[in-house]
């Protein structure tokens, strides 16, 4: 009785699977970026340039005074001239934003993990997380500012409250959406809770967490700015919101616009960075980041 050899490469008896070694297609690159990426970058830029041009023309044509509506050129000049004060304020706002985001990630993920370990914990605490989420931040910010004592701490808390819920709820959803058969398989191999968490549930939750992170990044910035608006010029904070209020009182409208521009650009930057992180982490396997070739 001859036993067929197992070690013979599969390619010997078929012409399909094993001969299809992975081949990674290379796309032509222009200035280091794939050619197909350029329209995505150039099209919005073109729209922006045209809009700014029309804006500048409209302001000059109608001789609108700068304290009503400054033109983009003036705003740009103000940005350069006031860079010293504005960049300092930007730094303060960004620091609060990132600290709040980091706290949101830590608290959100920790709570999500705890909630999936204990239904009781989830049942008793989740409603409060929802209450925090639905309460308008402008309404509770004054209280937090009074209680916290330190204005920076108060701003941090406000930004954190706004930012943490998307991370919490998305991560909970992700942790619970691990493939049921895989959960069974882990059970079958006698995996501990920690092993199941570490090797199965956390990776399964990653895309959900990252989607939450993208939302929370923007919300943290909004929270930081809104809270500072509520704190007003009475506070000792000097983030971008404070600069906007201050410049508004002094009718330095170009400066208001310059600070607004900085906030928008920061928001865009945060979005791009979180999207990029998400892309890096998911590009090999997740549907959302994959480039299908059909």
């Amino acid at each position: 009785m001859s036993v067929p050899s197992i070690d013979a490469p599969a390619a010997a008896h078929d012409g399909t699977d094993s001969e299809a070694r992975p081949v990674f297609a290379t796309e032509p690159r222009i200035l280091g970026l794939p050619a197909s990426a350029w329209p995505r970058i150039l099209a919005p830029i073109a729209i922006g340039v045209v809009t700014l041009g029309l804006w500048e023309l409209a302001v000059r044509w109608n001789e609108i005074p700068p304290y009503i509506l400054p033109g983009p050129l003036l705003i740009g000049q103000t940005l350069v001239a006031d860079w010293g004060t504005l960049s300092g304020s930007l730094w303060i706002t960004l620091r609060i934003t990132f600290m709040a985001l980091a706290a949101a990630v830590i608290v959100g993920v920790t709570l999500a993990v705890l909630f999936t370990q204990s239904k009781w914990l989830e049942m008793s605490l989740l409603p409060y997380a929802v209450i925090l989420q639905v309460t308008p931040i402008v309404a509770i910010a004054p209280l937090i500012i009074i209680w916290a004592g330190d204005i920076n701490l108060a701003l941090l808390i406000c930004a954190w409250i706004v930012a943490f819920f998307p991370i919490l709820s998305n991560t909970i959803l992700g942790l619970n959406s691990a493939d049921h058969n895989l959960v069974n398989l882990f059970q079958l191999y006698g995996a501990t809770r920690w092993q199941t968490m570490r090797h199965l549930k956390l990776p399964a939750a990653l895309p959900y967490f990252l989607a939450g992170l993208k939302i929370s990044g923007g919300l943290a910035l909004i929270g930081a700015v809104v809270a500072e608006f509520v704190a007003g010029t009475g506070g000792s904070a000097s983030g971008l919101a404070y600069r906007i209020l201050e410049a508004g009182y002094q009718l330095k409208i170009p400066r208001v616009f310059a600070a607004l521009l900085m906030i928008s650009l920061s928001g865009i930057a945060i979005f791009l960075v979180t999207s990029w992180i998400s892309h890096l982490l998911l590009r090999r396997w997740h549907e959302s980041a994959l480039k299908r070739e059909n």
Partner: peptide, 20 residues
């Protein structure tokens, strides 16, 4: 197949060994 999509073929096969 019930494979972990985030793990390579090798990592998927390694999983039971890792758990043990």
């Amino acid at each position: 197949p019930t494979l972990m999509p985030w793990a390579s073929a090798l990592a998927n096969v390694m999983m039971p060994l890792t758990l043990k």
